[in-house]
Design a protein around this nucleic acid. Structure first.
Length: 438
RNA sequence: GCCGCAGUAGCUUAGCAGGUUAGAGCGUACGGCUGUUAACCGUAAGGUCGUCGGUUCGAAUCCGCCCUGCGGCGCCA
């Protein structure tokens, strides 16, 4: 009996005219009169309109079916019919309707604010929109695993609870840990650097926590980063990997999720050309020149690019752009100077990838300094206690090698691919400055 | 930390140069409808207008404090 049920997406194909099938799922919409009844049924795969008449079902079943609330779970039996009047072109002519568990009045109705839907995210996950986003999210993280494993990388899992900061103590979440205080991880990087001396090439897809007081549509307090770290690799090689990775992910989404992109109104013609185009790689210094010549914006050399400048820069491109060699002064302690760079001042062996359409930085990465004294001095300049980083410095004392890595903001990438207005919809249960529920 | 915007029924909102019982749509309840597309028609219930205080004969409307939320800047992925 159980095996007789089929998925909606499997029956919504031509050639099934008149076929008798059993479906089960949830009531997505209902309409009708006292003789006709329309139930749009939803399962994980798709939706289909079910049509029932009082004559076919009999008074008792008809009245039971008519009384079903939205989101009641039901199983149905009927014959398939191609009909232009049905949304989606196919419908099921009902012969039987059996409630599994009738729903109470569903709180989500026609008009809802974005915030109301986020308050009810536990129920809104059932929407076509969230269903589509979650499917794409699954493709994206699956593609990341596939991409790195195909290239001989090992998955390496970092600790989530960490004793000290990696980039600026002010954005750390404190955790009561027995009788001490520790922190939620901001990046796997320090641990990844330890691991490459064993595994050489590693990656992860892990949660990251940042207590930044940023209230924007691009920030989450808990988000997922897909990182990589590789021994014997320059930052320029890491850039090549990063571009390949993002292209690979987009190709996978285009391959698997065309229906979902359509539901999200995330026009695939934005994404398709990306696969055949070159993605520019420019230096920070060149970026300043573009800003001055094409946008009339004067940025003092040495200042980090701010959001308005990044957005202005991206108006000149329709693909992601990688900007490398930012001024060393503005960069974190572990990013080494590139002595070969052609720039007005010292620049770091580092890069950011900026997404088009205003979605901002999706990747940040760099080569990692291997010079113990350079790191120590940089740490002191940032006001950190060098002794806290003793084990990290050990990695330079025992057979250090050139190595690089980067982190990809999974939700920012998903938000861009899905053309979302807000990054909060790129993750099932968003955590922000003000939101910790549901 | 800084700068904007908002808070009126379960939800989405109108009303805001102060003036009778604060309107509507959706949802809900009941009734009607043989093909609907978050249908349509009718009836009904549903509101301490975020809080506290002030101005006034009179405050949803004007003023002030506070609370809550949203977005943006800085910072970041």
């Amino acid at each position: 009996m159980e095996r007789d049920f089929v998925r909606i997406s499997d029956v919504k194909v031509s050639g099934n005219q008149g076929l008798e099938v059993k479906l089960r799922g949830w009531v997505y919409r209902t309409r009708g009169s006292n003789r006709m009844l329309f139930i749009v049924l939803r399962d994980s795969s798709d939706i289909i309109q079910c049509v029932g008449s009082r004559d076919d079902l009999g008074d008792e079943v008809f009245e039971t079916a008519r009384a079903l609330n939205i989101e009641s779970s039901i199983s149905v039996m009927g014959t398939l019919n191609e009909d232009k009047r049905a949304p989606g072109g196919y419908e099921l002519h009902l012969k039987a309707v059996e409630p599994v568990s009738p729903a109470e009045r569903f709180p989500i109705t026609k008009d809802q604010s974005e915030e109301f839907l986020r308050d009810n995210r536990h129920l809104w996950l059932r929407s076509r929109k969230m269903n589509a986003i979650l499917k794409i999210r699954s493709t994206v993280t699956g593609a990341i695993h596939e991409f790195f494993r195909m290239r001989g990388y090992y998955e390496f899992t970092p600790p989530i609870l960490t004793p000290n900061a990696a980039e600026g103590g002010s954005t750390l979440f404190e955790v009561k840990y027995y009788d001490r205080k520790i922190y939620m991880t901001q990046t796997w990087q320090l641990y990844a650097e330890a691991a490459i001396f064993s595994l050489e090439r590693i990656y992860d897809v892990s949660p990251t926590f940042r207590a930044e007081k940023s209230k924007t549509s691009r920030h989450l307090s808990e988000f997922w980063m897909a990182e990589m770290e590789a021994a014997w690799m320059s930052y320029r090689q890491a850039i090549e990997v990063a571009i390949e990775e993002v292209r690979f992910i987009i190709a996978k989404v285009l391959e698997k999720n065309r229906n979902e992109l359509e539901i999200l109104e995330a026009d695939t013609s934005r994404l398709e050309p990306l696969l055949s185009k070159e993605w520019p790689v420019i230096t920070y210094t060149e970026a300043l020149r573009i800003l001055k010549e094409k946008m009339g914006m004067d940025v003092t050399w040495g200042k980090d690019l701010r959001t308005i400048e990044e957005e202005a820069l991206m108006e000149n491109f329709d693909t992601p752009v990688t900007v490398l060699q930012y001024p060393k002064e503005a960069m974190a302690f572990y990013k080494p100077v590139d002595p070969e760079a052609d720039a007005p001042g010292p620049v770091a062996k580092c890069f950011d990838m900026i997404a088009p359409e205003g979605y901002g930085e999706i990747i940040g990465g760099s080569e990692r300094d291997t010079d113990v004294s350079a790191i120590s001095e940089a740490l002191e300049r940032e006001g950190e206690k060098v002794e806290n980083y003793d084990w990290y410095l050990d990695l330079r004392r025992y057979g250090s090698v050139q190595h690089s890595g980067y982190g990809l903001g999974v939700e920012r990438l998903i938000a861009w691919i899905c053309r979302l207005d807000n990054i909060k919809d790129a993750i099932p249960f968003p955590r922000t400055l003000t939101r910790v529920t549901p």
